[in-house]
Design a protein around this nucleic acid. Structure first.
Lengths: 222, 222
DNA sequence: ACCTGAACACCGTTCAAGT
DNA sequence: ACCTGAACACCGTTCAAGT
């Protein structure tokens, strides 16, 4: 091997950089993604990345967008105006996409900005709610609350937040946390159960506010 | 000034380190908090911090705990078994505490672990829900979903996630985002409105599931 | 156009040395 | 006990040099 300045065929591509970055983030966390480490994983030297992206943040933007591109918003169209079904389908797919890559969530939460997949998702969700009869201001709030809920649930496991040690929580200090150390074992069930229960409650609660709702007594809306 | 090895009175204390760290995080973000920068702000050299904390993460843990210590859980006790009032009061105070320090939220979301204020909050909320008649498994889910919602809403502004530029969102690409650039101006109202609307929906939806609820027709619960 | 190594101003943390 | 400067192995990014 002798020094190679420019190869006949590019060693890197934006796609390869992004997929390797995502794999590294998934396996070792956001902090493990350094430009030098990523370059090493790709078999090139650190500065090579700057031929394809102008900054590390731009790489993260691209990674974030591929994650959001996995979200399925087809439930709105398929439900044909049934906002409950559309919203449930979107929210579940949204959560699944983020839960598959939890370490990128803090970065994702900075908003879609100019990321195309994020904007496409926002457009579909907002449009779906408006077409189902929600006033635009309320549709905005609903999209925001779904994002809050999904991002929060993917950001950090509730169950994993506790310590797996029966002696960790002294009953004298925390009288109700006697079983908390058991949460760690049932992590997935706890987190998914909480998300699903919360999502149902959210939709049920929203239904009470829909402009076309017929209240229980059949009376007028406020 | 000549070299000072050990001063008569300690220059640092854990309290001073934590409050300076929080101020730095609030004003410049989590990434701006380096041990060297923090030390400079405190008027000492970098390694001095290691006489008071064993790692930077331990400093962040202490910062996180002081933020959570601001959350008011007294609503559960004051509401005397009325879980709706207790939950609303807790969730609003929880969100206010996190929204005051948004940059620490990604760190907070790793869970209470062994942080006393976080555990005290979890204990009070879980205990409050159980005492109001919720089965423990459901009380756990409710505490988790409130954390998801609060953390998600404090993590990143929904409104600030868009770009304040009328030309940013081409109607050909995003037919429903024509007004999205306006969100940035009304940031606080949008985010607080979404949180409040979502919280009400969540509580309303949960009420339908409470074991002691009398269903509309007065019939039996499933 | 696309890669390289050298360089700059940073990191977190350890450690021997001072009082 | 509590501070210091020097040192180690890292960072993100720029830039001149190579083909």
């Amino acid at each position: 091997m002798w020094p190679m300045a420019r190869p006949r065929k590019p060693l890197l591509s934006r796609e390869r950089i992004v997929s390797t970055a995502l794999a590294l983030i998934d396996s070792e966390g956001l902090l493990a993604l350094s430009t030098r480490r990523l370059a090493a994983e790709l078999g090139v030297s650190g500065p090579s990345l700057y031929n394809h992206f102008t900054t590390k943040d731009e790489i993260l933007d691209a990674v974030a967008d591929t994650v959001i591109a996995q979200v399925d918003v087809s439930a709105f169209a398929e439900a044909g105006g049934d906002w409950r079904t559309g919203l449930l389908g979107w929210a579940r797919s949204y959560r699944a996409a983020l839960a598959a890559h939890p370490h990128i969530v803090p970065f994702l939460a900075q908003g879609p900005g100019r990321r195309p997949a994020g904007l496409k998702m926002a457009d579909a969700a907002f449009g779906g709610m408006v077409e189902a009869g929600w006033p635009p201001a309320q549709a905005t709030r609903i999209c925001a609350m779904v994002r809050y809920f999904v991002a929060g649930s993917a950001l950090g496991s509730f169950a994993r937040g506790f310590v797996d040690d029966p002696g960790a929580y002294d009953p004298a200090d925390y009288p109700h946390l006697g079983q908390a150390h058991l949460l760690v074992e049932h992590q997935r069930q706890v987190d998914e159960g909480a998300f699903e229960t919360g999502l149902r409650a959210l939709v049920d609660g929203l239904a009470l506010q829909h402009p076309e709702r017929v209240p229980p007594g059949g009376g007028q809306q406020l």
